[in-house]
Structures are given as C-alpha cells and as structure tokens.
Design a protein around this nucleic acid. Sequence first.
DNA 1: ATTCTCACA
DNA 2: TGTGAGTA
Length: 131
Amino acid sequence: MKEKELRRSLSVFPIGTVMKLTDLTARQIRYYEEQSLIHPKRNDGNRRMYSLNDIDVLLEIKDYLSEGINMAGIKHIYDMKREEKEKKAAELKKPVTDDDVRRIFHDELLQAGGLRDESGPTPLFHTHKPL
DNA sequence: ATTCTCACA
DNA sequence: TGTGAGTA
C-alpha cells in the first residue's frame, strides 16, 4: 500500500492539465499554493509540476468553497489535519521505554499461561495503551 | 504553444 | 481574483 502512495505523490502534471482536471484558473491554483494548501514541485524550467494528491486537494478546496467556507477556514482545516499527522508520526518514532517493555513482557506471560482466549491472531500491542 | 512573475486604467 | 505585460 506504499507503492500506490508513492505514485500519487509524483509530481507529473503541468498547470495546464490541472486546470482542465479541476476547472480552476491558473491564478487560483497558484494562489492556493501561496496559502500552503498544495506544494507542487518545480521542474528544471521552473514550471510547477502537480501530483495526483495535489489535484485531490484542489478538488477538496472546490467543495469547501462551494459549501461557503472561506480561505481562512480551509487553511485551518488543513492545519489541523497536518498537526494530527505530525503527532502520529512522532508516536511511531518514539522509542520503546523500559516501562513499555515491562508491560509488554507481563502480558506475554499471561498469554503463555493460557489466561487468554485463542480466538484469532493475538495482537501483540493492542492490549496496551498507546506508547 | 505554455507557464512564470509582477503589477493594477 | 481577473488580466495584461514581458520572459523563459
């Protein structure tokens, strides 16, 4: 499921193609970039190259706009989503503490002792609160 | 032909 | 946000 993410992140469309796909003007597309809603890469000729993800965001922006949400509101929506992702990314990089090891080892013993049912694959960490 | 930056009767 | 100018 990572190969797919990679392709969606590849910047391969010039602004002209994005205009037709999103029905937005070049002015608007560049403006939303200034608002940091999208981050198209630049090719060797300083031309903006958009990814499928950028196009999806552009389409989402159109929806929000049609629903009466202004740029400030839309920016807040993406700022929140960004902070949540950064938070989760930090969780994954967080090293396992001695405390975690103790809790995990304790549960491993309970399992070995047959004190738990055998239904389905036994989740290794789900029985613990988030690390 | 396309896209880019900048500016505004 | 639109649009025209002067480029690359």
